[in-house]
């Protein structure tokens, strides 16, 4: 076999393998989207319905707006679930604010670690513990503690615990960006007469801005999709979208897959958009200083 042919075959092999995984990845996502357009009877059909012959926007209408349903006795409103708008707002508020804190404080801490070693490497790794202990271990006493502080069912309460549990990722990611910034650039600014604060503001921040944005969005993803803490620390006011999703278990009509899917599409789409936006930076943040450039 000549070299060229061999190379071509290898090439085809590669595309084949990648495409198989691409299908595995795409299929469930396709299924969510397809289900969100299916009428009730196609949700759990035998054999499965890959694309409904009568696609409908009904699910979206029921989930996101008030929807009229006709039956033999007349017309009735199927309000079904409480509308997710409030949950959407909560999710946005909580994840944006807690991410803001985690990233803001994380940036300062990361700068200190990168430039002045205010935490030793050992302490930096210990910081990871905040992330690595399963939340289920502390959630019961936390809810009790929160209730005495009147933090249950408040945005503040969720923001505090989210900021803490995402801080390790924030510090590690941003540190990896700052580490890449040559020290000399800051020194140049300082010796040219800029104060430390000024240097931070005018030189460091603009240069790691894309990294900070990436970190911000990454942590936004983590908090956006968190379930257990949101479930137990919320009541009426601050239920988030994942909590909202979990109540879509029907008892009489079976699970309302179509409605769930219609909501899931709404919950997931923003994340996918964000993820695509930050894909180049994700890797750096994940590598925890283990990848040298």
């Amino acid at each position: 076999m000549n070299r060229n042919l061999k190379r071509k075959l290898a090439q085809y092999g590669k595309y084949f393998a990648l495409s198989i995984w691409a299908l595995i990845v795409a299929f469930p996502i396709y299924w969510i989207v397809a289900t969100s357009f299916k009428p009730d009877r196609d949700w759990f059909a035998w054999p499965p319905v890959y694309w409904s012959e009568e696609p409908t926007l009904n699910n979206y209408a029921v989930v996101w707006a008030d929807h009229k349903e006709e039956y033999e006795g007349g017309t009735q409103y199927s309000h079904s679930m409480q509308k997710p708008w409030k949950a959407l707002r909560n999710s946005l508020f909580i994840s944006v604010i807690s991410t803001f804190f985690a990233v803001g404080f994380g940036t300062i801490l990361a700068y200190g670690v990168s430039r002045y070693q205010i935490l030793s490497e050992g302490r930096m790794f210990q910081l990871l513990m905040l992330r690595m202990v399963p939340p289920i271990v502390i959630v019961a006493p936390l809810s009790l503690y929160y209730s005495t502080l009147h933090l249950l069912d408040t945005i503040t309460g969720l923001v505090i615990i989210y900021s803490i549990t995402t801080l390790p990722y924030s510090v590690w990611m941003i540190k990896s960006f700052i580490d890449e910034l040559p020290l000399e650039i800051e020194q140049a600014a300082m010796i040219l007469g800029a104060s430390r604060l000024r240097t931070l503001w005018e030189i460091v921040f603009p240069l790691v801005r894309s990294g900070i944005v990436a970190t911000f969005l990454f942590i936004l993803i983590l908090t956006w999709s968190e379930y257990l803490l949101a479930l137990i620390l919320s009541k009426t006011e601050v239920a988030t979208l994942p909590v909202e999703l979990s109540k879509y278990e029907g008892s009489v009509e079976g699970r309302v897959y179509g409605r769930q899917a219609a909501l899931a599409v709404g919950v997931t789409l923003p994340l996918i958009a964000i993820g695509i936006f930050i894909r180049k930076h994700l890797a750096r943040g994940f590598s925890f200083g283990m990848v040298k450039r």
Binding site: L231, A239, S246, K247, E249
Partner: peptide, 17 residues
């Protein structure tokens, strides 16, 4: 006025809390 909208299967746990 307002309700906490969770599944009837989860309410026993939340009520106990």
């Amino acid at each position: 006025g307002s309700i906490q909208d969770i599944s009837v299967f989860s309410i026993p746990q939340r009520a106990m809390a």
